[in-house]
Amino acid sequence: MKKIFVDYEKCVACKACETACAMENHPSHSLFGLLGDKKTQVNVRVLAVEHEAFPVSCRHCEPAWCMDACPSGAISRDSETGAVILNPDMCKACAMCAMVCPFDAISFKETHRARYGRDVAYKCDLCNDRVKNNELPACVAACHSGALSFREHDQLRRDQAVKNLRVYLLGEEKLPKNFELYRELRRKEFAQRSGEK
């Protein structure tokens, strides 16, 4: 099964992934549709940690603790893609899933898919429909720096995945020169900002 990998050394924190995800999940599928819409659903979040930045989201863990915690039959795994899918029609927003997710990948609000006039849990669905159509997840397709990729991952990685996020955040190749410079810059900027505090 394929998963989304994050090469954090390449992330330039442009948030193109966040926008693409929001558009993919919006009924209008357009940028203008998102504007001022409180029900907009974004399943990926670019997090800045010291001088690093990287997009974080559901890891579609195996076993998935959220799935084991859900008492409503709302979370299941797609047998074809391996994606962990949350069905808002069954979800009661009880937070049993969020309570055990180490990645804080499950959030609550009244999205466009909420049917009962209250909040529901929502999270990344690996763009399951796109993937079944042989397309890339929207965030990966939108990432211009190569920080996000959608690749097969072997059993070893799967075993480590739940415990060790670094596996997903590997910088595997040697970085191109401009990235090195960019990272150096971020590091300095961060040092400067922390010094000012």
Binding site: R45, L47, A48, V49, E50, E52, F54, V56, P102, F103, D104, K163, N164, L165, R166, L169
Partner: peptide
């Protein structure tokens, strides 16, 4: 309040790593 403490520990920015 940003939900970054887990990632901080995994990136080695503070001690107390899991596993």
């Amino acid at each position: 309040n940003r939900g970054d403490s887990y990632y901080r520990s995994l990136m080695g920015f503070n001690q107390g790593q899991l596993g």
